[in-house]
Simulated assay, not measured.
Amino acid sequence: MAERSGPSRILALVLVGLGAFLLVAAILIPTYTVPRLEKTPLDLEVTTVSTGTGSVLNAASLASGQAQVDQNVPMVSQRFVTVEDPSNADEITLQAGQTLRRSDKQGDSGLLTASVDRVTIDRVTSMPVENPVGTIQVQGDKPAEEVPHTGLQYKFPFNSEQKSYPYFDVNARASKDIDFVEETEINGTKVYKYEQTVGPVDLSGVVNLPTNKVTLPAATWGVEGGDTPVTMTRWYENNRTVWVEPETGVVVKGEEQIHQYYSRTAGEAEVDVLKAPITFDENTVEYQIQQAKDGQDKISLFGRTIPIIAGILGVIALIAGVLLGLRGGTGGPRHPARTSGTRPTNDGGGAAPAEPRDRDWTTDQTEVIPRTNLSKE
């Protein structure tokens, strides 16, 4: 009679199936999940604060007949980045409102610069897309202007490389390469350091603002010529440094050496408008590091931790199922084998017919007594 499947065989099949499922999952989870995690989140909302001390032109002094540049002015720059429409599975629109203020003055008198920048980027590469075209607004009473953005700004790509990237400057409204310098650490976090040099840029050729080209008496500018009108152009230069966590592309720290000045010649400042190093404050650095770590943890969880655990459990289940199945298949028959044979006859010279096959000799307790020949020859 064929052996019936028992609980051990069923359990073996379950374990083999479970092991195979876990091994497949270990392969598919990182393949499917990680690419979806390596995208700029659609709920992004980041505020960065930078501080510095430098020199600032007192704009009111131009009207009084003598340009005055205030020294050792404390400054604070604040940038608020939010997600706007259109945003979808592949692209995200970022809007960044940024102000630079001198913190020793209150209200409008302390505001030095303000802008609203809007750009739509690829959620993986962080590079701008062609449509819609980005915009920049620098005057609150005038609409934003369409400005094609051609480089990185607020975030680097996932898995950033040790190479140069195009980086867009809002003031210059153009991109220039930002170059990899070195791998280093900030508060125990590995980062890539990049540097960029911008300018000198003639701002009057970038934005049509009355303050970007100004004509005043030479004496007001503090140069020779007395009352002779002298036209000065506003120039812009910047040395930018960013430190990027490479796996997530988060900018952990940023620093700018900003220099705006009036001059008749590029690169030769005659009257400083703004000259200061502006750097992320410590709270911003810590916040950005935490943002990077959160992203790393998610990628590591689905890209390494879960697949490794699933793979180990899958191998264990598979081996256990195979061993249990092999063990369950080695059992013998339920009853001992029955044999047929002959019984001796009473005269010892022949064989008696075998007992019927349905008779169980193992349970027959009848004593077999051979016949005895009672007659004498």
Rank of each mutant, 00 (worst) to 15 (best):
S5D: 15
P7D: 10
V14Y: 09
V16R: 15
F21V: 08
F21I: 09
P30C: 11
T31M: 06
V34C: 08
R36V: 09
E38Q: 12
K39R: 11
T40E: 03
D43W: 10
D43C: 03
T53W: 04
V56R: 05
A60I: 02
S64R: 12
N72Q: 12
V73K: 07
P74F: 08
Q78C: 14
V81R: 12
E84T: 13
N88R: 03
N88I: 01
A89L: 11
E91T: 06
E91L: 14
G97H: 12
R101N: 11
R101E: 13
Q106H: 04
S109L: 04
L112I: 11
L112Q: 08
A114H: 01
A114I: 02
D117K: 02
D117A: 02
T120P: 02
I121R: 05
D122C: 03
T125H: 01
T125D: 08
S126N: 15
D141S: 13
E146K: 05
G151Q: 10
K155E: 10
F158W: 00
N159P: 00
Y165C: 02
F168G: 07
D169Y: 05
A174L: 09
S175N: 09
D179F: 07
F180E: 02
K190A: 08
V191D: 08
Y192I: 05
Y194V: 10
V198C: 03
V198D: 01
P200H: 08
D202V: 04
V206M: 01
V206F: 04
T211A: 10
K213V: 14
L216C: 11
A219I: 14
W235S: 12
W243Y: 07
G249T: 03
K253G: 00
E256Q: 15
H259Y: 10
Y262D: 09
E268H: 06
A269L: 12
A276M: 02
T279S: 14
F280I: 05
S300I: 15
I306T: 15
I306P: 14
I309E: 14
G311E: 10
I312M: 14
V315D: 10
R327A: 15
R327E: 09
G331V: 06
R338A: 15
R338E: 08
R343A: 13
N346W: 15
D347K: 15
P353M: 13
E355A: 10
D364V: 15
T366E: 08
V368N: 14
V368F: 15
I369V: 14
K376N: 05
